[in-house]
């Protein structure tokens, strides 16, 4: 069992910001990420551009460039340990975190834990949705951008929002065809023997070898729920999420949550939130907390601010 001041689970934008904030003020910090490389969504959502840096000392720019710059920053701290390829699979009493990688298992005992576990794609069922060739937008992005392989050549996208637009851009960049889009999961049908070959949208039939579900993302707050943090369904934050204040403090002592895991947000929002959570968890001075709070306040949309404010007020006693 390893003892640390602050453990951060998730090495995406929010987790990186939290880990840097915590390490900067001298707290012994561990950053845990299941992927081979730090960067989280910046590694598969490669169309993203960082505009607001959320108080983090990094040049705005394309997400991938920012991810590399941040990975470089992280490696400069002596009091920060990075565990990649490591899954945090449980959050137990006294904030003990169960971790494992390909070869071994261990436990971490931090004073505070910051959950920055990001999001999962929303997948709604429809006829044929289990056929090989039908996948989430994130699967498509991960296979194309991280693993560099095309899941298919002729695509249909289910979804009509930002995520669908983003994926369409990704697919076009990869040089494959998007032949149809449907906004409505009640009106789509996938078929084929053994794998996807056709998609019906209403009365139209398309020949396609891939169908991506791009209906949006929802917070991945499993570890907070494992620790029995209070939760609620808040559609403005993307679905089931955890009661917390603006610093990410949940109902459980020493358990913080930040970024998409605490409510789907913009890059600037999740970074500013991660930074504030990192400073809070590591016990920063009132002055730096105020500054980080102000940055977050400036960046956050009213929608997010209101959702979080309501979440916290209804939190007590729920």
């Amino acid at each position: 069992m390893r003892q640390v001041d602050v453990a951060v689970v998730g090495g995406g934008p929010a987790g990186i910001a939290a880990a840097i904030a915590s390490a900067e003020i001298g707290a012994s910090t561990i950053l845990i990420d299941e992927h081979a490389n730090i960067g989280g969504q910046l590694r598969w959502r490669i169309g993203l551009t960082l505009k607001d840096t959320g108080g983090l000392d990094v040049e705005p720019g394309p997400g991938l460039v920012v991810a590399d710059a941040l990975a470089g920053r992280l490696s400069q701290f002596d009091n920060l340990t990075i565990l990649t390829g490591t899954v945090a699979w449980g959050l137990f009493d006294d904030n003990v975190i169960g971790i494992s990688n390909d070869s071994e298992a261990d436990e971490i005992k931090p004073d505070s834990v910051i959950l920055a576990t990001g999001s999962t794609d929303i997948a709604l069922p429809f006829p044929g949705w289990t056929l090989p060739g039908v996948m989430t937008a994130r699967a498509a992005q991960t296979f194309m951008h991280v693993h560099r392989v095309l899941p298919g050549r002729t695509w249909v996208i289910l979804g009509d929002g930002e995520e669908a637009d983003e994926l369409q851009g990704d697919l076009e960049r990869a040089g494959v065809d998007v032949i149809a889009r449907s906004a409505n999961p009640d009106d789509i049908r996938a078929s084929g023997t053994n794998r996807l070959t056709h998609v019906e949208i209403g009365a139209d039939v398309y020949e396609a070898d891939a169908l991506a579900i791009a209906l949006g993302r929802q917070p991945d707050a499993e570890l907070a729920l494992h620790a029995q943090a209070k939760s609620a369904f808040v559609s403005d934050l993307g679905g089931f999420t955890v009661h917390r204040d603006e610093s990410g403090r949940t109902s459980e002592p020493g358990v913080f949550i930040a970024g998409d895991a605490a409510g789907i947000g913009s890059l600037g929002e999740v970074i500013a939130e991660g930074r504030l959570a990192g400073l809070s968890a590591a016990g920063a001075s009132a002055t730096s907390l105020d500054a980080a709070r102000k940055t977050l306040e400036e960046i956050s949309s009213d929608r997010r601010k209101n959702a979080i404010a309501n979440l916290w007020t209804i939190g007590t006693g729920v």
Binding site: A123, P132, A139
Partner: peptide, 23 residues
């Protein structure tokens, strides 16, 4: 996938194919 294979397994009862979904 790079070798053109998309099917990973067959379901216990129905025998239906499954492949990468969440990735």
């Amino acid at each position: 996938m790079a070798n053109g294979i998309d099917i990973c397994r067959a379901m216990p009862e129905s025998g239906e194919s499954r492949g990468v979904f969440c990735g």
